[in-house]
Amino acid sequence: MGIIKASKLVHEYIRRDEEGNVESIQTAIDHVDIDVKAGDFIAVLGHNGSGKSTLAKHINALLEPSEGTLWVDGKDTKDPKNTYEIRRAAGMVFQNPDNQIIATVVEEDVGFGPENMGVPCEEIWTRVEESLKSVGMLKYRSHSPNKLSGGQKQRVAIAGVMAMEPKCIVLDEPTAMLDPNGRKEVLRAVHELNRKKGVTVILITHYMEEVVDADYVYVMDKGQVVMQGTPRSIFSQVEKLKEHRLDVPQITLLAHELKKSGLAIADGILTREELLEALEKLYHRKG
């Protein structure tokens, strides 16, 4: 069993009227099976309302399954006795950077998690330093979060999770509110944590460019996992992605269009370098 495993996981949002009668049931997650290997970089793709954020909350035991089971680090999220251990094992970063920073000084915010866990004072300091360094924010340690850019705030939030020394970190659309620079900063930081510290990463997003370097991709729509595989195998199915309200990076789309027009180009081109190479080969072979 991997570090995160879902078996026929179902989540229903139930809306009740004032008397407590059920008004409507909305199935946000519909029999989802996933299995994440420790140390992997996983991406979960889907449009708004596809159920991907609900899934993220389950991994942090912020929600309880309606049906099915989810194990995080081998622990069933349904058992309230496990909640604390699960939250220590799987840290979570949310979309809005402002709404998850608690303290008014960067380092105090990073220390918040370890404080809650009862980590001794001296160790908190080393953890705070270490995790701020790992996201490149150490020099801002005594700044106010209000004066930071969106990308910097989000990196502080990541440091705050890292200071809890989790095995796995779940990022729920961490770049949706950032500008291109901020997005790059955050992604670079997350990839580095995955590579250098071996932290399992689950990145939830609708930006296709962010998925290119993942080890494995799940695509969600209407609460179900509708596609899964390596980024290359996912991106080679341009038409199917469009059906699920997603689009592909400009370069992949261009390669796809060229192929459709009769050029002999492979499916699932991910980077500019790959397309450049393919076109070059094609040009010189013909010429």
């Binding site: 949310f94 402002d98 709404n99 370890p114 404080e115 705050g160 809890m164």
Partner: peptide
Amino acid sequence: FRRADDLAMAMEARCYVGGEGRTRMKP
């Protein structure tokens, strides 16, 4: 209200359960 809701969830996710058993970074 939306911010309060988000923040409560973020605090919970960071193992906040009230004052019991907390240590201090800057005692």
